[in-house]
Design a protein around this nucleic acid. Structure first.
Lengths: 104, 104
DNA sequence: ACCGTATATGCCTTGACAGGCATATACGGT
DNA sequence: ACCGTATATGCCTGTCAAGGCATATACGGT
């Protein structure tokens, strides 16, 4: 059940992997090239992402095609939501402040 | 400049701290009680949050009152945005699928 | 000046994680 | 059956972060 979504997203390499996968399915080889890490290291990151439910795998002959499954990110989004409201309030306040400056 | 926003938010205790601070300013003592950790451990978490620009401190006699400054979370939000679009598409697709089922 | 309260910092141990290399496994082609 | 390609796993090492305890610092009251 989406163990460690934050941990999974905490690593920059893994975020980069997801960004690469946003363009569509990619083989591990492609991802290795895109990451600059070794193949084993890349595979391990993919494992973490899979465990977190953030990616899906599909076998294609000896290749494995990964695709992003963003569902679990909703958890992060949900946590973030109340704060989004907070920082929007502050931006609004800033906007009003600037408007007031202009008017004065 | 908001170093390690993901790292800062990665720890559950720190997220809990932020959730506590969402209600308003709190002293370290209050936060210690709310966390269940020791006071030094709590202070260290607060240090990380401060370094990430997620909280602000204000001195009040010997107490230090912390308040949340959610600005840096926008970075996370920005990163998340394209995926939000992705999972909304999927939810929409699911919705259409269910509608189709209902219609059939 | 001293003391108590509130908070921060230092030191230490432990556990988790990343990444490299070597190796195992999966699979198709011949 | 064998081989090459593609990917996963095991093992090892270094790094880093968390949390506990002891201690330093800040500050107000007396």
């Amino acid at each position: 059940m989406a163990t460690g979504i934050w941990t999974a997203l905490g690593d920059p390499h893994r975020r980069r992997l997801l960004d690469l996968l946003r363009q569509g399915e990619r083989s591990v080889g492609d991802l290795v090239a895109g990451l600059g890490l070794t193949q084993p290291a890349t595979s391990k990151h993919l494992r973490v992402l899979r465990a977190a439910g953030l990616v899906q795998v599909r076998g294609d002959a000896q290749r494995r095609l990964y695709a992003v499954t963003p569902g679990p990110m909703a958890d992060v989004d949900v946590w973030l939501a109340p704060y989004r409201q907070l920082w929007n309030e502050r931006l609004d306040a800033l906007g009003r402040h600037l408007d007031a400056d202009v008017e004065s």
